[in-house]
Design a protein around this nucleic acid. Structure first.
Length: 270
DNA sequence: TTTATTTGACCGAC
DNA sequence: GTCGGTCAAATAAA
């Protein structure tokens, strides 16, 4: 990675443009994940959800393609100027030739996002490990349908050592999904919609220090759940003026406030 | 009781 | 010996 960064910094302009393209697609993917989450929550009947999901799939494969063409292998937005030195340290380890070799056994691609579960698939966590020189543990997920449908897709999620707010996560995927997922699972809500959103999500308290262990995640179902969990559980870290409404607005609407009670129900110890 | 998550142990690569 | 990745028993939650 360090080598890669140097290559990008000092390399030919085509590589620079390549890097920029990855960054931009990455960002678009992130924004669409958030939009997808919001749309699905507002319109459980999935008005437009399929379209957005397809866009997400396309951006994922575009990233995959770009990253496999040689100029870059990371999500592109790794370098956070605010905490660059720590990041560099943590990357040195993972850039060992041996690690590369191991990882390259399978098709892998990665993105950096604030919405680490924004891919529309369902994942089951099968491991978590502290990575050398990394501040946060890495979590290992495989497709929920691995047994049922033989889907070999996997991913790892690791919070970056950056001080970014909201926190950023590097999500590394390996193997394409071969399963047929049931999109609507998180949104086939019965009379208690908040149950679905409040009790799902993927972070243990260690991964996400602001998340109480009592609500540590179960099934990772959809990015939308993560979005709402993040809003709910991370609020204490947000300066008071940037409460739920402001965070939501920053994600959702440039035009103004929106009704949380409408979305979330109205109680349950917010 | 079933299902998912957690976490220590194990394994292969280096 | 160290490391990242995976397994599987223990545990928690529904």
């Amino acid at each position: 990675m360090v080598k890669m960064a140097k290559k990008i910094e000092g390399g030919p302009s085509t590589c620079h443009h390549h890097h920029m393209a990855i960054q931009e697609i990455n960002r678009a993917h992130e924004l669409m994940s958030q939009l997808h989450a919001v749309l699905l929550q507002l319109f459980p009947a999935q008005v437009g959800g399929d379209i957005l999901k397809e866009i997400l799939t396309l951006t994922s494969s575009a990233l995959s393609g770009l990253q496999s063409t040689g100029c870059g292998s990371s999500g592109g937005s790794d370098d956070d100027p605010r905490c660059g030195s720590d990041k560099r340290k943590s990357l040195q380890r993972s850039d060992r030739p041996g690690d590369h070799k191991r990882r390259r056994k399978q098709e892998t691609w990665s993105i950096v996002t604030t919405v680490p579960y924004g891919d529309g698939y369902q994942w089951r966590k099968y491991g978590q490990k502290m990575i050398n020189n990394a501040k946060y543990p890495r979590s290992y997920y495989k497709c929920t349908y691995r047994e049922g449908q033989g889907c070999l897709a996997k991913k790892t999620v690791q919070q970056e050592d950056s001080c970014a707010d909201p926190p950023r996560f590097k999500v590394e995927y390996s193997m394409q999904h071969t399963c047929k997922t049931i999109d609507a699972v998180p949104f086939v809500m019965d009379s208690t919609p908040k149950e679905a959103s409040l009790h799902s999500g993927g972070f243990s308290s260690e991964q996400h220090p602001c998340l109480p262990s009592a609500t540590a995640g179960n099934l990772i179902q959809d990015e939308s759940l993560w979005v709402y969990d993040q809003m709910q559980e991370c609020l204490p870290l947000v300066p008071e003026p940037l409460g739920k409404m402001d965070m939501a607005s920053s994600i959702l609407s440039p035009t103004g406030p929106w009704d949380w009670d409408l979305l979330m129900g109205d109680d349950d110890g917010w």
